[in-house]
Design a protein around this nucleic acid. Sequence first.
DNA 1: TTTTAGCACTCGCGCCGCCACAGTGCCAAC
DNA 2: GTTGGCACTGTGGCGGCGCGAGTGCTAAAA
Lengths: 353, 353
Amino acid sequence: MTAQSSNDALDDRARHLLKTLVEQYIADGQPVASRKLSKAAGSRLSPATVRNVMADLEELGFIQAPHTSAGRVPTVKGYRCFVDTMLAVKPPGPEDIARLEKELGLDVHQSTKDIARSASSLLSQLTRLAGVVTLPRATRSRLRQIEFLRLGERRALAILVFENQDVQNRVVNLDRNLTESELRQAANYLTRELAGNDVESVRSGLIDALNQTRATMNGLMVDAVTLAQQVFAGRDDETGQFVVAGETNLMDVQELSNVQRLRGLFDAFNEQRDILHLLDQSLTADGVEIFIGEESGHQLFDDCSVVTAPYRVGDEIVGVLGVIGPTRMAYERVIPIVDVTARLVAAALHPKG
Amino acid sequence: MTAQSSNDALDDRARHLLKTLVEQYIADGQPVASRKLSKAAGSRLSPATVRNVMADLEELGFIQAPHTSAGRVPTVKGYRCFVDTMLAVKPPGPEDIARLEKELGLDVHQSTKDIARSASSLLSQLTRLAGVVTLPRATRSRLRQIEFLRLGERRALAILVFENQDVQNRVVNLDRNLTESELRQAANYLTRELAGNDVESVRSGLIDALNQTRATMNGLMVDAVTLAQQVFAGRDDETGQFVVAGETNLMDVQELSNVQRLRGLFDAFNEQRDILHLLDQSLTADGVEIFIGEESGHQLFDDCSVVTAPYRVGDEIVGVLGVIGPTRMAYERVIPIVDVTARLVAAALHPKG
DNA sequence: TTTTAGCACTCGCGCCGCCACAGTGCCAAC
DNA sequence: GTTGGCACTGTGGCGGCGCGAGTGCTAAAA
């Protein structure tokens, strides 16, 4: 305990040592011993003194010793303190930025899903961790056009084109056998009525429109509305899904070498469980957010950290991206990478045409 | 060596013992000892006699001992012999068949890709191994309709509808700014000209058509053909891809517990490497095919077996499906499952409308 | 000639004790 | 408050030991 011995307050020396300790541990994964720390910290403190400080830090719960006579390892609280109050972020190198800009700006992306995939893959490659990107919410993207194609006797394909150039297809069943020209008229009618709205408001506003005007509608319009109901009834294909890349990077991580643990993570990725909750929490955040170890609230991620950032189109948040890795990750590199990726994804999603 | 001592010929007793040994080993994963084998084989041979036979089998390369004083384990040659000449397949239980039929017959499948996904997932669940299904070759599926939607100044969306109800979208760039009605006419023209052909023949026959008739074409038709060239130039989005499910099942497999080995497999799944070659080999096969261990020719699969079956639409093979697991798998259960799944996928793909 | 029992031998595995090493905690001196 | 010194302790690696499993071989039985 020191001069300013309030519960959590650390004096500068302790803070500096904690910082160095976390950095050391992140760098080489070994518990940090007093001697090594004394050297690394650069100050001319002897190992013995360092030991005293370490004892204090342990008492306060920032670090812990895996066993009696080993060095110290940061606890979650230690990481948290480090990340919140002493992290010196290293902006990504220009070649990394160039790569992000290039690959996210490419014209080959046919859909927002392609962009998400690229982003996820880039995240995983730049950080050597698992990258994760939720698909941008189509609900918030405005409809531009609706089209129907007759597929068979009673089946038609509905094509929704969004202003951001995205396209969605859905097969619908027809109550009665509409001709091609009837379908075309229905499509025109619906496009006229609905274009400019996002799916969400269409879904909730549709009934109103229907009820308000039913008196003045002709038969075809009634059919059209029936069709529309079917089209928009289905769950949003892609909303709430995410794309993972580079999961296998996690297999090389010492701390996660337990196969059963890994299986848990991979299953969670595949079934899109758990992770979604976590990502959703970041939807309201303003910038990069970090969940360390147990903070995520899911046992699965006990030895993991998740670094996320929401990304926006216009001034509206439409998705979240980030990386998942061991608590012992190079935060100072990872955080800025996630940050700029979020910005660049936003840029890539911006309607250009 | 026995009465009929030609190089590979085994007498009935040796064959029976080999069969039992493989079955035993598959059942409990432990090297099989002479005593245990003597009991399991049911014949009233003493362990000593069994040992003699085992020595012969080892000399011939069918089995091997992991170390001097352990039981015996089948070699690849042993598995091969077992699978080819003494396997008694167990048809899947009625509840498994019912499940396959139900989930593959569902109407919720919007595309062939959905069917492939279901099949893959079912395969992995029924076998507790990794399921793999190539997407059916769209090249062989005939075009039914082509449609264009104007997306912006110089961009349009091409929509290809196939006779099997599949739909593909591609964004194309326009040389000049075509109006909606021009696009419609182009679409009509192309549909008239190309419907009924598969992508493959369109791609190769298109130039001919263009050249033959250029003299008699009006400007719009020229535009249409230019568009078509762009649409069909791109690689087939989905051909040659495959869907994997249940990879994580492999994490529970003893024999593959080495994390690096697993990583290799998972990377191969993600990047769709290697596996494709393997699956392609089965494209010409007539029924279930089995690659045991090194037979696959890829180091990656050294301790794995791959059981595949092609599936067809009409009488044409359009894809391959199967499972990947450890060499020590329950072939007698897996093989029939793969077999009926192939049939049922074929059925599910059959154009019903 | 084939089958069997018996026996010696080998290997793998788990266990224990040992030791060296790393690093701590504490005490006494500065 | 800081430091050097020193005793203490848990870990990890290594060798030895005993045990159990299972073989190969030999010699006797069928």
